[in-house]
Nucleic acid binder design. Structure first.
Lengths: 151, 151
DNA sequence: TATAATTCGGACAAAAAACTCTTTAAGGAG
DNA sequence: CTCCTTAAAGAGTTTTTTGTCCGAATTATA
């Protein structure tokens, strides 16, 4: 039902970067502060996104991270394939190594259409779109600093 | 996208028990062997399901586990609420502590209908039904012993 | 060139999840 | 009552995930 923390941080960070002026590097420290996530851990995640070509990074003064040209259009599916592994949509919900239309687990045919909707949703959502939504002010990218609720 | 191993084992075990004669205790050892799952770990999971009233357990000779009276009708949602925690459907996909229609993350309104379909599916699937499906022989509850594929 | 600011890389640490081991309690059968 | 079989309980281990730390490399600016 949930994504790994790594994936959540990655998506949040990418959306945040996408809300900023393109080409202007954003500091890891600023992203971490804004999202209220551990900076050193986030740095690792951003490094990984760089290696996979979603982000560009710049060292030294005026350094930081920004979306690679054209990557505003990338889908959440693409992001999650990087953070969760290339076939995170292909795994059987019961964990069977082999589970397909031919050799199916008892949940397979009920799960399949639902999974397909999830996939369609992830393919449809782009960083650009999500960033625009955030910029309207109607959506929240992180918890308010003061909220200390249960996880 | 996936369930915890604990949840997967729990569902598999419950379906397996549901395929057996009701009232006849099934040995943990037999379930573990059938599902190809670590027996000691499975025992913990079954214990937990007992504590929550889904299973009855019997010690000593002729002991084992069987579904509590009426629990053939229980839904996967019920099972997962026990294994994943009572509000595993209520968590924000981005991990925000507060995320509702009023205070939404940018994915909230896209995710909500999809999540609702997942919930509906989980509510609709019962152990009885799944057990029947398995008994037709068309579905597989565990991997074949010989299959050594990538996870 | 010196300095400060930043990412990079690797090792390390802590927490959570998955899994094991050992002992105890309970129940059925001889 | 004794023996065997089973689950219960709890401590311990391993693996994975999450998170920290520090030194080195890189870059703009004074």
């Amino acid at each position: 039902m949930v994504l790994s923390r790594t994936s959540q941080y990655a998506i949040q960070a990418l959306i945040y970067i996408a809300t900023q002026a393109p080409g202007e590097p954003v500091l890891n420290r600023d992203i971490a502060e804004r999202l209220n996530v551990p900076a050193a851990y986030l740095a690792k995640i951003l490094q990984n996104l760089c290696k996979h070509g979603l982000l560009d990074s710049f060292r030294g003064r005026l350094g930081g991270f920004c979306l690679r040209e054209g990557m505003q259009k990338s889908s959440l599916m693409l992001v999650l394939q990087l953070t969760e592994g290339p076939d995170f949509t292909k795994n059987c919900i019961l964990g069977l190594k082999e589970c397909s239309d031919e050799t199916a687990c008892p949940m397979h045919f009920k799960w399949k259409p639902v999974k397909n909707r999830i996939i369609a949703m992830l393919n449809a959502m782009t960083l650009e779109e999500l960033a625009k939504a955030v910029l309207t002010g109607k959506y929240r990218l992180a918890d308010l600093p003061g909220s200390a609720l249960a996880a």
